[in-house]
């Protein structure tokens, strides 16, 4: 394991997580959550869990982003907090 790369990805995971929770626009929160899932997928590929990385790439970054966006489309986009 190259710990420098993993450290960078871990920091980006935390940053994307904070961004998804704090942004006021729910659509961008959904997209940021997709980016968060993709960073986790990279992290698991580095740690040797290829099956989990594959699942996360197809499920977390693919389908769940679509579900979030369609739910935002059906409800409202802006929020107060």
């Amino acid at each position: 394991m190259i710990w420098q790369i993993e450290l960078i990805i871990l920091v980006m995971v935390v940053l994307f997580g904070i961004g998804a929770l704090t942004t006021k626009d729910l659509l961008s929160a959904a997209i940021l959550f997709g980016a968060y899932s993709f960073m986790l997928c990279l992290l698991w590929a580095i740690m040797g869990a290829v099956d989990v990385a594959f699942t996360e790439a197809s499920v977390g970054a693919g389908i769940s982003t679509v579900l979030f966006v369609s739910a935002v489309y059906r409800t409202t986009r802006s929020t107060d907090n």
Partner: peptide
């Protein structure tokens, strides 16, 4: 190789979702 029913099923479902989109 990495893969299996869960991943393949999700990708197959995603192709239909892409069609609908």
């Amino acid at each position: 190789s990495p893969g299996g029913g869960f991943q393949g099923g999700v990708i197959l479902g995603a192709s239909f979702v892409l069609f609908a989109l």
